[in-house]
Amino acid sequence: MAKPAAVIQPIELVSADETITIEMTRWLQHLRAERRLSPKTLEAYARDLRQCLDFLCEHWGARVTLARFSSLEATDIRSFMAMRRADAIASRSLMRALAGLRSFGRFLEREGKGRVGALSAIRAPKIAKSLPKPIQISAAKRLTDADERAGETRETWVLVRDAAVMALLYGSGLRISEALGLTRRDVPQPGEGDVLIVTGKGNKTRMVPVLQNVLMLIADYVAICPYPLAPEGPIFVGARGGPLSPRIIQLTMERLRGALGLPDSATPHALRHSFATHLLSRGGDLRAIQELLGHASLSTTQIYTGIDTERLLEVYRNTHPRGRDAATSKS
């Protein structure tokens, strides 16, 4: 049985009175219980709203009340955004802050506590789209080989565990949280299955294939792990037997980057990029890759996989009737 969501403790702010803090607490509780947002997202939204309330308190010269907040003007929001940008805050963080403020405004409106129309009048900052940087196939394979770290003083089972996690990230395109969230019961024995049921963002589950050689790496780790692994417990555990922290895998990648001469962009998440990019470069269907990655939008997958323009042009030239005519006339 799933554990009930923890109750968010009442919030106290110097910059706002009780009418705001009560609604802010209720809003965060709603986001956790109904929207199932992650603790990190809740923390970021709460921080953004606090910063806005602190700014408004100074901007207006008085504590913020619910009534005053409901009468926000577009100029107030623009002033807050300008202040944040002056602090060298990235556009992506500004966009998240505006999204959080709009979410709070919509919550107040649904609850009949006011309508903050000014928030909808503000345009979200533009974000430059940057293509992910996949790891080369040869390097990705070496990252999943425990022998690459044979000179380290760490215990063998730890090296084998880390290699198994890396293989899972690259072999199935999982997010690190998805891989470390797997229980022993979730992972089939080699030869007894070839799919995983993964819980991704928004508590959505999806089926992803898993390679037999990856299952064998996981089985090798399980066989030498010094801790008992309960069927309902995490399959990947840390040095003391508790759930494995993502930070451990990040540090492992940092050490391997130095050993293999990889750039700083080679992170555990880059293995997910590599999974998608390498499938696409070998003729994988974009919509199938979208399903494997658990993306709601195909446009997200297009950016994620870093589609090669030259490859698209080649497909166009080889498949469009006029493109084939042009190629024939040159021969």
Results as ranks from 00 to 15, higher is better:
residue 38 S to F: 00
residue 15 S to R: 02
residue 3 K to G: 14
residue 194 D to A: 15
residue 6 A to H: 14
residue 154 R to Q: 13
residue 67 A to M: 09
residue 213 N to Y: 15
residue 212 Q to G: 10
residue 158 V to L: 07
residue 93 S to C: 06
residue 232 E to D: 15
residue 64 V to P: 05
residue 186 D to T: 07
residue 160 V to Y: 00
residue 271 L to G: 04
residue 163 A to R: 00
residue 12 E to W: 12
residue 97 A to S: 09
residue 164 A to K: 00
residue 299 S to Y: 05
residue 47 R to H: 12
residue 239 A to Q: 14
residue 256 L to G: 02
residue 257 R to H: 06
residue 209 P to W: 03
residue 198 V to E: 00
residue 101 L to A: 08
residue 296 A to K: 04
residue 184 R to C: 08
residue 179 A to P: 00
residue 28 L to Q: 01
residue 147 D to S: 15
residue 3 K to C: 13
residue 96 R to T: 01
residue 227 Y to H: 12
residue 164 A to M: 05
residue 25 T to Q: 09
residue 297 S to M: 11
residue 28 L to W: 04
residue 103 S to Y: 08
residue 60 W to I: 08
residue 145 D to Q: 12
residue 79 S to Q: 14
residue 89 I to G: 02
residue 203 N to S: 15
residue 45 Y to C: 01
residue 202 G to T: 02
residue 330 K to S: 13
residue 28 L to F: 13
residue 249 I to S: 03
residue 246 P to H: 04
residue 40 K to N: 15
residue 244 L to R: 01
residue 323 G to S: 06
residue 62 A to T: 13
residue 302 Q to L: 08
residue 141 K to F: 05
residue 87 D to A: 15
residue 270 A to L: 05
residue 78 R to E: 11
residue 297 S to Y: 10
residue 145 D to Y: 11
residue 87 D to M: 14
residue 80 F to S: 03
residue 211 L to M: 09
residue 289 I to V: 12
residue 260 L to R: 04
residue 324 R to D: 06
residue 152 E to K: 03
residue 237 V to G: 00
residue 194 D to S: 14
residue 56 L to E: 00
residue 317 R to C: 10
residue 146 A to N: 01
residue 298 L to H: 07
residue 194 D to W: 12
residue 95 M to R: 05
residue 166 M to N: 03
residue 270 A to N: 02
residue 169 L to V: 08
residue 44 A to Q: 04
residue 246 P to W: 06
residue 179 A to L: 03
residue 62 A to D: 11
residue 197 I to A: 12
residue 89 I to N: 00
residue 290 Q to T: 11
residue 28 L to K: 00
residue 93 S to P: 01
residue 321 P to K: 07
residue 219 A to Y: 01
residue 108 L to A: 01
residue 41 T to H: 00
